[in-house]
Each structure stands twice: as structure tokens, then as C-alpha cells.
Design a protein around this nucleic acid. Structure first.
Ligand code: ZN
Ligand code: ZN
Ligand code: ZN
Ligand code: ZN
Lengths: 137, 137
DNA sequence: AATGGAAAGTTATGTAATAACATTATTGAA
DNA sequence: TTCAATAATGTTATTACATAACTTTCCATT
């Protein structure tokens, strides 16, 4: 991700703002189509309008995609303009749907060390743990 | 996963055997539909035939699903009947498509430790690292 | 042979994502 | 300001991924 893409003061377009607002007001990850459903009242009609906004929000580091759910969540650093840690992981509650984004130095160094030892060059990662959150068990 | 499900001498049905054979003979992960395409000559016609076989093979621990690719790979322990490690991770080459399944004690303990500290109870995990393998960079 | 459960077959449908192309809005020189 | 380049939108259609619902076949056990 470029430094420019990390600048959170970048102005969002109308559709990008709409999509981000829906994600911010949700306590669970949302699929592109359920985002669309919530925005039909605001003039959005086609999946592509949502997918294009999501693409930009992903590039800007303001949302994350959960690969194992085909769903999207707002990044917990989205509002602060800080540098985003490299390796991101998620704990996803199968009961209440809550997602905990976290950045664990040990997870990161273990993956980096393994990659180094196997000659693998990391470009991206998806680390998603499913189970029950503290409230739900 | 039950102990029974780990018993690799369990007899596979015709469709399960066909699907597993296709995955074993592929050097890359395959989507359900591309598995189906390779099995049309053997009488398979519908996606469900493949998905049902995959479901059983997943339960039996003989294949893994790559969440970030909507694709499936044969488990590297598939032939040996050994107990499968709890936490599995994958390095996926974006150039040649090769997948390296690995089990890293440090990754595992870091995730378990984080879950403990946040009160999260792990049931399943998807750890998928994308990049370039040693041969490709 | 009768029976019950697992697997397989079949058709239809639901969900996720992108292709292709036309239009409008923004930006940034000349 | 004017105009060309770029970015964003709108729209329709299509492709890719996955499951629902129901029927039939297979096979082991009684
Ligand atoms: Zn984040
Ligand atoms: Zn919960
Ligand atoms: Zn495995
Ligand atoms: Zn490679």
C-alpha cells in the first residue's frame, strides 16, 4: 500500500462514503449484496456500484475483506490515519458475528520467519480464526 | 474431526475417488467447477456431485479448502493416515500456483496464546499467505 | 427378501463477482 | 476559459461459486 493510499483525509466519493457508512454502522461484517440492499434507498441499484466502492476502500486501507466469509469489515484503524500494521488477523465469532481485528507480533514474526526459511516472498495474507468470542461462551 | 474421520483406510465412493484423483494429479489448487470439467468424461454432470464428494473428503481430512481462492488442494498428509496437526497454514504462489501446506509451531502457539488472552475459543482457522515461491523469484 | 440409511442423480435456484460499454464528473494544463 | 485526460458512475449482461429440494439407486443388516 502506498503512503498516499494511507492518507485517510483523501476525499471519498459519494458511493464510497455510502458504503463505508454502512460498514461503520454495522456490528458485523457484511457481504457486498447486503450492503447493496441497505443502499437501495439511496439510489444504488447494481452490485458493481458497491464492488467499485469497496475496491477503493480496500486500497485506501479503510476496510478489510474476510476471505472465509465473502464479507467486508471496516478497519479498526480507519479513522486515525495511522500506518497500518503489515500482518492483520481476525477472530470471528460464529455466534454473534463480531469480528476482532488484531495484530500480533508473534504471529507476524513466525510467518515471516517461515517464509524466509522456505524462500517464500510474502505479498499478502489472510489470517482468519473462527470460533466463539468471550461474550458467547 | 473424529478419530474415525481420520482413518484414511475408509473406503471412498466412486465420486469421492474421482474427485480426489483429480486433485492429486493437479499441481495447483482447483475450483469445484474445474474439477467438474475434468470429470465430465467420467459421467459427472452436476456441481453437486463434486461438492458432495468434496464435503466428505474435507471431513475425512484428505483435502483442504483455500478460502481466499475458492479452491481445493489435497492434504499433504492424505496418504499416510497420520494425525493431522491442528493449525494448518498455506503459502500460495501467485506465479506458478503451487501451494505449500505447513504447520508451524510458533504460528500455532501465537494464535492460541492470543485467543486465550482475548477469551476467544478457536474452532477453525484459515491461514493463507500469498506471494512468490522460491522457484518464482 | 425386507428395510433403513448413505450415496448419487437431477433440476432449479440462490449468492458472489466481473465484463463490456456508455455516460458524466473532475482535474489540470495550455 | 477551454479542452483533453483521467476518474467515477450508470447500466445490462454474463460468469463463477454454492446450495435447496426431491427422487432414485446402492448396499449393508436383519
Ligand atoms: Zn485494519
Ligand atoms: Zn460472540
Ligand atoms: Zn493437511
Ligand atoms: Zn511459484
Amino acid at each position: 500500500m502506498t503512503q498516499a493510499a494511507q492518507a485517510h483525509d483523501l476525499k471519498l466519493t459519494k458511493n464510497q462514503h455510502l458504503v463505508l457508512s454502512v460498514l461503520e454502522s454495522s456490528r458485523q461484517p457484511l457481504s457486498a449484496y447486503s450492503i447493496l440492499d441497505r443502499l437501495r434507498g439511496h439510489g444504488l441499484k447494481a452490485p458493481l456500484q458497491v464492488y467499485r466502492a469497496l475496491e477503493k476502500l480496500l486500497e485506501a486501507g479503510r476496510v478489510h475483506r474476510l476471505e472465509s466469509m465473502n464479507a467486508f469489515v471496516v478497519c479498526c484503524h480507519s479513522r486515525h490515519g495511522q500506518i497500518h500494521p503489515r500482518i492483520t488477523a481476525f477472530e470471528i465469532c460464529e455466534s454473534c458475528g463480531k469480528v476482532n481485528e488484531f495484530h500480533d507480533e508473534k504471529v507476524e514474526s513466525a510467518l515471516i520467519q517461515h517464509a524466509r526459511s522456505s524462500g517464500f516472498k510474502i505479498r499478502a495474507s489472510a489470517i482468519e480464526v473462527h470460533g466463539l468470542c468471550a461474550d458467547c461462551h
